[in-house]
């Protein structure tokens, strides 16, 4: 018989007895006050909320009045400044007509009229992927994302194995994953309460290897940077480098 069949058989026999059910029932009821549900229901329009709203409205009113007074006082100066600015703008436009446009960025050296997008676009193969609720969200077009997602099992497994081999009870979060020159770079950050709180990951109390979303940021100390490479023979990924940030 297979181990999983034995497991099913043995576990199916594990049931709560009638006595245990009664014990649990009475224990649970004793632990909770009779009016607990009502006590927990907070009225939406409570006194504190109304006071805070009123205070906020007063603050807004004071701010509006102050801005109005200031704008009235300085309106005379502004008119003078406007007329001066208009004169400057006209002279600048005239100057521009005389001089042809010249590219200033080295990456736009041929004087291309299109704006230089290199600052915001992914550079080369160094692409950033986010992982949200287990599915890969990419900054790249969908086709790229899909091909990366199909690899997920092959890279996720060795990363998980690595974490298990560390034998650290409080484990790591898979924080960032990227692909560069055919290798996969994974960054794992320690799963600590303050990080979980920062990432609003309060559901993940068990601190297994988690997949959460995150912006590329300063990597905290204790983070592990892994590089995985595909083994041409088996087609599977294996870890070729692991570095811990102190």
């Amino acid at each position: 018989m297979k181990a999983e069949d034995l497991l099913k058989q043995a576990m199916s026999e594990q049931k709560l007895s009638d006595e245990a059910r009664e014990r649990i029932l009475s224990g649970a009821l004793k632990s909770v006050p009779e009016n607990a549900p009502e006590a927990n229901k907070k009225p939406f329009f409570n006194l504190l909320l109304i006071r805070r709203l009123a205070l906020g409205a007063c603050a807004c009113l004071v701010l509006i009045v102050a801005v109005h007074v200031m704008s009235t006082i300085f309106s005379g100066d502004k008119k003078e400044a406007d007329s001066s600015a208009k004169e400057d703008a006209v002279s600048a436009v005239n100057e521009e007509v005389k001089t042809p446009s010249v590219a200033t960025s080295p990456l736009n050296i041929e004087g291309d009229a299109t704006p230089n997008k290199n600052d915001s676009a992914p550079k080369g193969e160094n692409r950033f992927y986010m992982i949200r609720d287990g599915s890969v969200v990419s900054v790249l077009p969908k086709s790229e994302s899909a091909s990366f997602e199909s690899l997920s099992d092959s890279w996720f497994e060795p990363v998980e194995e690595y974490i298990e081999d560390l034998n650290v009870p409080a484990s790591y979060i898979l924080y960032e994953i990227s692909r560069e020159n055919g290798t996969i770079h994974a960054i794992l950050i320690p799963c600590e309460p303050d990080i979980l709180s920062e990432k609003k990951a309060e559901d993940y109390k068990d601190c297994e290897l988690l997949e959460i979303s995150g912006e590329p940021a300063v990597i905290p100390s204790g983070a592990i940077s892994l590089i995985l490479e595909r083994d041409p023979a088996s087609g599977e990924y294996r870890i070729i480098s692991a570095e811990k940030k102190n």
Binding site: M11, A20, G27, A28, L29, N40
Partner: peptide, 29 residues
């Protein structure tokens, strides 16, 4: 009970965990 038993490994603690779960349920409704 089975879920808890598989983690805590003994029936007494597993029953306690079921009870705690029900207490949370009653408290939070």
């Amino acid at each position: 009970y089975r879920m808890s038993l598989s983690i805590v490994g003994n029936s007494a603690d597993a029953e306690d965990m079921v009870q705690d779960t029900l207490v949370t349920w009653l408290s939070e409704t």
